Simulated scan of single mutants.
Amino acid sequence: MINNKLIESIREYEEEAFLLNYDLADNPELPSKEYRSSKKIQELLEKHNIKCEGNYCDLETAFKGEVINKDAKYNIGILTEYDALPGVGHGCGHSASAAISVLSALVLKGNENLINANVDIIGTPDEEDKGLKVPMVERGVFDKYDFVIMAHLGSKYSIPNWRLIAFETHEIEFIGKESHTAAAPWDGRSALDGLMLSIHAIDMMRKMMRPGVIIEGIIQEGGISPNIIPGKARAKYTFRSTDASLLEKEIRPWLNNILKGCALATETTYKDKIFDYPFSDMNYNETGSEVIKSVMKENNIKFLDTPDADGSSDIGNVSYRCPAFHPSIAITDEWVPLHTSQMVDLVKSKKSEEAIVKGATVILGFISKLLDNPEIINKMNEEFKESLKQS
């Protein structure tokens, strides 16, 4: 069995993965600025004869490592994230997530003779802000793979495959005409009035949304002085849904009508721009997810069987190009929210080492089960193709 050999080999490489996590956690880098992190990961991979291509897809901190290249039927991708959060650091655990992916790649490279597949490790930067997997998706990077996988961190329970929700951010701006609020208000048109009216209208829209839709926003600019009618006002809104098509087909047209109506009512104009890349929901693959559950059971990893969709990531976009899997590994049995200093402390602690080993165990166990049973890969891909017909 491939599985036993791979799991046993984790011990041979785990210390280097632990050190990588600690190094990245102590030196967090912001999205799209992960120059040192990307370099450190590539250096470790190349130390183990995994040839890396930097500046991948013309993204400065992205890379592709060729783990195994042979005349094989199946192509496998291991994804790697390594960006941190502003003001927090690795509160999403990407330092440990990167270590999990790298550890999995090193084990596979060390057992290359057992692996009847081509395997790449792909460094995908800037998940926390822009979502740079999306332009990689648009360039067809993931189209050749039979499946891709990466592990994230979580708490309390591990999750076999994260159910993600679609996400997009809108930057809304109203443009009016400045004037003195007392001397000549009739010469002005308040951009803030247009924005405030739209905020109330969006709140009314929110009440009518389908289950699974989340709408939140903030005012970024509302004027410069109470005695000046604001000529410009800005807000940023996020829209999430368990179904990406709802954002495109229902919410965007409704939002456009709201902004148009509020501009007409206040004799202002408006701009609405989608900020960076919209994230898709997760095209959830039941066949592959059941395999991950079996790996977790066999390795005594406590998991939540049917979690609700509760987060967003650009791997959702990848999941519409090939079967994509995003298991979450609990770093503690207690509930600790992501994006917090508590999670940073856990990532920097010895608890991270157990999570890294568990994450690599899940990825390697998943890959070995599929290669031992290629009929499951075929079934997985049939389910994927059918899902695209229904989306």
Rank of each mutant, 00 (worst) to 15 (best):
3 N>T: 13
4 N>T: 13
6 L>N: 07
17 A>M: 05
53 E>C: 02
58 D>F: 06
65 G>Y: 04
70 K>H: 07
75 N>Y: 05
80 T>N: 14
81 E>Q: 02
81 E>D: 06
81 E>S: 01
91 G>K: 00
92 C>G: 06
101 S>Y: 06
113 N>M: 10
116 N>W: 11
117 A>S: 09
131 G>V: 05
137 V>P: 05
137 V>A: 04
141 V>R: 04
142 F>I: 03
143 D>V: 00
163 R>E: 14
167 F>G: 05
172 I>H: 08
174 F>Y: 09
175 I>A: 13
182 A>L: 12
184 A>D: 15
191 A>G: 05
191 A>K: 00
198 S>P: 03
203 D>K: 13
209 M>K: 08
210 R>K: 14
212 G>E: 07
214 I>L: 14
218 I>R: 07
220 Q>F: 08
222 G>E: 09
223 G>D: 12
226 P>A: 12
237 Y>I: 00
240 R>F: 11
243 D>S: 06
254 W>T: 11
255 L>R: 00
256 N>D: 15
257 N>F: 10
268 T>W: 11
269 T>L: 06
270 Y>I: 02
277 Y>A: 05
280 S>L: 11
301 I>M: 08
304 L>E: 15
305 D>E: 12
316 G>W: 05
318 V>W: 09
327 P>R: 01
327 P>D: 10
341 S>I: 02
346 L>M: 10
351 K>A: 04
355 A>W: 00
355 A>T: 02
357 V>Q: 13
361 T>K: 09
363 I>M: 15
365 G>M: 03
368 S>I: 00
369 K>F: 09
373 N>A: 08
385 K>L: 14
387 S>Y: 07
